[in-house]
Nucleic acid binder design. Structure first.
Lengths: 126, 126
DNA sequence: AAAAAAAGATTACAGATGTAATCTAAAACC
DNA sequence: GGTTTTAGATTACATCTGTAATCTTTTTTT
């Protein structure tokens, strides 16, 4: 398994945009992020460049502007983040986490029902 | 809700020790952490001091050494970490996270059964 | 009491992160 | 073709983190 780069919170926002649509120009990313953040364009450019350095993004020159695309899939990213979180907080135990969430009554009745459906569906599929 | 301090990965390890037993002296923490890490005593002292600065730990002088104790509960800590993780990766949606884990087949058949039991039990209790 | 040991306080220092501004080169416009 | 615009590259800078070492003060120990 190759080393997955560390992706910070701010960088993650950029990845989400690019996972949502790619390839994209830096400007498209900037426009998207202006909707939910108050980051200046230069800030987004910095984040993009760092992600390129980390090999989380690749690009190809298209004339003046570059087109960026992800080098790691969203699922890979999620996996890495999830493992880091589980390791830090729940000793890597998914069950411990679930037990905790359920104990803390994080789920509404409806969510529990939905969860049950998902589980049953999952049982079906495997 | 008062602002919860940011607790880094390394600091979290210290909190875990102190949540496990408190009040404790710095040395007891150092001894505990030497079992799973190769941190030098000074490193642990730094982490403890930063946690005191962040108001995650309090202490009372007991002669020469101090006795440290947590100012935030483990559950509070877990809640903050979990929310940050969910927010970053799953737009704050617990269900999205679960659906993803289940989809990624993170659970064994047995764990799914257990999960079902927990859910049903939870439904019972509320 | 002088010396040694030990605890916390202060200082260190590089890399990551958030958040940009400035520099440089190329493209578009007049 | 010179000028303006614009894209990416470089530089900036404070804070946080990981990982300690040194300094200072207070206890012990002899």
């Amino acid at each position: 398994m190759k080393e997955m780069p560390q992706i910070s919170d701010a960088e993650w926002r950029v990845m989400q945009v690019i996972w949502g649509k790619s390839p994209v120009t830096a400007n498209e990313v900037i426009v998207q992020l202006e909707k939910d953040t108050d980051w200046k364009p230069k800030t987004v450019k910095t984040l993009i460049r760092r992600l390129v350095d980390k090999k989380a993004l690749g690009f190809q020159k298209e004339g003046k502007a570059y087109l960026y695309y992800p080098l790691i899939t969203e699922n890979e990213g999620i996996r890495v983040e999830s493992e880091a979180f589980l390791k830090k907080v729940f000793n890597g135990s998914l069950n411990l986490m679930l037990a905790n969430f359920i104990d803390e009554q994080k789920f509404t009745e409806g969510e529990l029902a939905e969860l049950r459906r998902i589980i049953d569906g999952s049982g079906q599929r495997r």
